[in-house]
Design a binder for these strands. Structure first.
Lengths: 227, 227
DNA sequence: GTCTATACACAGATAGAC
DNA sequence: GTCTATCTGTGTATAGAC
């Protein structure tokens, strides 16, 4: 499966994404009309990602956000109770995005080699689809409260475990070489993250997401498969 | 070479490092006595790294820094002209650290395979020696001024180029398989960064820096070397 | 629901005694 | 060289008219 295909299946408009956020956080918002809320939430998230990408969430002021969205300072507070809670909302939603699809895809294949390929690709494609969410979640993890921070660490461990399990089971079935699978999984994760953390580099090198994913899989298979 | 050996050769005390910073930035400081300056700069950097690790440089207040170092708010400003300049000083010094040793090590070996191994290891070992500097430079890159930000990007490209060149030359000499060496170099960088960005993970997994480096080299060689 | 005006807290930075 | 006290700007958040 290439990225175009993946996008057709798992793609979701920003509007639908904002709708989901709205429904998950209705209780925190003073806005009642879904249509208005979804519309403005879309603007808000977009602006947060743009500003935070440049200078970080902490350095972003509510006035910056107001200017970028065109929504007045006062009105912004009808959409979330405060800056800190806004951060929490974005993180939680990011977590939901990753979890939902990855679990499903992992169940799709039987052959360990196929499964490994599929899961590696899916994660990269997901991070491409929701790049701002992935980038933000990674870079701003330190700014959230301890309780939520544990969530982030467990997210790291969760996705790593999926990979490590595939390798371990696959080894038993004779598909992969023996080795320290936990460590290998960790390295795979690092390379996956590279895609959304350094997007500017790959734009410059004119490397597409498909090329990147294939290259990564090439490396992993050279290391894990028998000749 | 393992980490213990590396440390003996390239290790430098925090005091000597602070001395270097002092000498490079004398003009910005109101302190004249080197001994006092070096002593307090050491405290300052240590505190900055600790606080920024937890909540980021932007979120760190000068009052936080004062409390952690035991140096009063007013006195701090004798060591640097302002918070922003402090950020710049740390970044510039980080850049100096990386550049100096890496260049030298790259010249030590002739055989491409040896050279690749040496450079990969050296970068990881360096990042272990100066972990706070590496972590800080990566995470706070967005907060520096555009001019200095170009410096960071070029640092990324610089270290990547060292790797890519080794691979390209090595291919011509028949040591490595052909391939997209720029992309491979990029992946190697991603895995190297993993070591200092997610230190908590490897502490938990009880993976030593030597084990990590060897595993990484194993992956790279499986992909680049002929059987 | 959205706006403008404003309260209030706290940040970075400086003054000036010691 | 270091301290405490203080200035001044700017940030988050709210009040209350429309």
């Amino acid at each position: 499966m290439d990225y175009t295909e993946f996008k057709k299946i798992y793609g979701i408009s920003n509007q639908n994404l904002s709708r989901e956020v709205f429904r998950n956080n209705k209780n925190l918002m003073r806005i009642k009309k879904e249509k208005t809320a979804v519309n403005n939430l879309e603007k808000i998230f977009k602006a947060v990602f743009r500003i935070a990408y440049k200078k970080g969430f902490q350095a972003m002021t509510m006035r910056d956000l107001s200017k970028k969205t065109g929504i007045s300072l006062g009105a912004l507070y009808a959409y979330f109770p405060g800056k800190e809670k806004l951060l929490g909302i974005i993180h939680t939603q990011g977590w939901i995005i990753i979890r939902k699809d990855l679990e499903q895809i992992s169940g799709l294949h039987e052959d360990p080699r196929e499964k490994l390929r599929a899961v590696i690709k899916a994660h990269i494609f997901l991070s491409e689809l929701f790049r701002p969410w992935f980038y933000f979640t990674f870079m701003e993890a330190r700014n959230i409260k301890p309780l939520e921070f544990e969530e982030v660490k467990s997210m790291e461990e969760y996705t790593q475990k999926i990979l490590a399990d595939i390798l371990t089971k696959g080894e038993k079935q004779g598909a992969f070489k023996p080795g320290d699978h936990e460590l290998t999984a960790s390295m795979i994760k690092a390379m996956q993250q590279e895609w959304y953390l350094k997007r500017w580099k790959y734009r410059k090198l004119k490397v597409s997401v498909d090329e990147f994913a294939d290259h990564l899989i090439g490396i992993v298979e050279a290391f894990c498969l028998f000749e």
